[in-house]
Design a protein around this nucleic acid. Sequence first.
DNA 1: CATACATATGTTTATGTGTTCATATGTATT
DNA 2: AATACATATGAACACATAAACATATGTATG
Lengths: 110, 110
Amino acid sequence: MEHDVNCEKMDKVIENMPDEELIYNLAELFKVFSDSTRVRILCALMQSDLTVSEITKSLSMTQSAISHQLRMLKQARLVKFRRDGKNLIYSLADEHVSTIFNQTLEHILE
Amino acid sequence: MEHDVNCEKMDKVIENMPDEELIYNLAELFKVFSDSTRVRILCALMQSDLTVSEITKSLSMTQSAISHQLRMLKQARLVKFRRDGKNLIYSLADEHVSTIFNQTLEHILE
DNA sequence: CATACATATGTTTATGTGTTCATATGTATT
DNA sequence: AATACATATGAACACATAAACATATGTATG
């Protein structure tokens, strides 16, 4: 650490760091994407709006597991839903998911 | 589930799902981004190449903690490093991190 | 209104993860 | 070679998390 003097460089780095809160939110959102099940749900919804039971069958998992994960996706405002009789039809909240996924795939596929 | 007949829709969804492996890799990469400490390290490196001790001081954390996290970032090929005497200077492996972060921030800031 | 169906929620359990502490490795300097 | 400094690594612990199970809520239909 160069004689402990002249830490302007580090000072600038610290000064220009994003707010703690922003960093926390960023990490939180990535955390939602960090589970295979949730990614699979999102990939399914990228193709078509689906009811909970359709997702459940598509992924061959418990209805409870899917429902719990949908909860997280809702909280993160990544999916929305509308009611159709007994069914809840889930869909992607916006196009951001696709964009983020595609960017990330670029990193993987090289 | 419409009389259990005509599940063409679901069949198509299942058929067009990305490979398990791809989904797993995607989730794994997001997992790397899902921790505040790692995000802070990456944000710091977005501004300047830094030695381990510089990162350590910038984030006010243990050298060990930083080193462990740098290991994950290395494994994910998100950072690289070069040696300068006793120091290891870390830097971002490519521009993908910035791109991904910016896309994700767009989702948060709306 | 009772029943069936779709979905959500609470709890438990097994597994994963980040940090700390202690210590090892690796590099320069005298 | 011995010492100091920079970084990495292994183990332990505290905490988070995903899935399963049981059950509750909510909605339509007879």
